[in-house]
Amino acid sequence: MKELTRREFLRSLVGGTTRAGFGTGLVYGALELREGRTAPAGARGDLGIVRPPGAQIEVDFLSSCIRCTECADACPAQCIRYFGPEAGALHATPYLQTDQRACTSCLDCGHACPTEALAVLERKEDIAMGTAVVDERLCVSHNGSGVCGACHTACPLRNRAIVQDYRNAPTVNPEHCTGCGLCEEFCIVKDRRAIRVVSGRLLLGPSDEARS
């Protein structure tokens, strides 16, 4: 066996450990195990991305958002999350996972935003994050398996955005619904919510332009 000089030994040692460390970082990045933090872009399927209140249309939002973290720091409900690098162009932009934690319409994020990516809104009625849609086959009040009314109770615009019918069956009024998602968070049907927020805000899609 060839004898190593001290220099060669140290060099191989340091070289090996740095290579190992660098490789570990890359593997972590590639595996991207962001448990519970982010959903890949479009994970909500055709429901679209729910942006925080006051967000401009998607094209303008992506160009003016500087990907700081001020909106999440300002959010008292801690409902604002960020996409991870696996989301590509959406990396580090804010979104809401409304079935887990919904917006409380405090409007602090608009005041915190250093650019006008999130506009300053004065009234919670001005929020337009999306629209709640009731799945009448899943909703216990609609399908006759029970009497619930949780979404109506949770709604910040009660009797305007959500009105109740026979057996507390909810009906969403899209004109008033802000898409805050409180109804979705508190829906008692847990596997697939019977009321879900649809934003129509697909990345750079035409429906987004139509929304403006």
């Binding site: 990045g29 962001r34 519970g36 933090r37 999440a72 999350r81 991870g84 690098p85």
Partner: peptide, 25 residues
Amino acid sequence: HDFVFATFDRAEHGRFGFWVGGMSW
């Protein structure tokens, strides 16, 4: 920021321990 939030999010789901995945990029 993401790392700190992820630490608490994981704790809320009952997963503890040091986790380095949030710092991937």
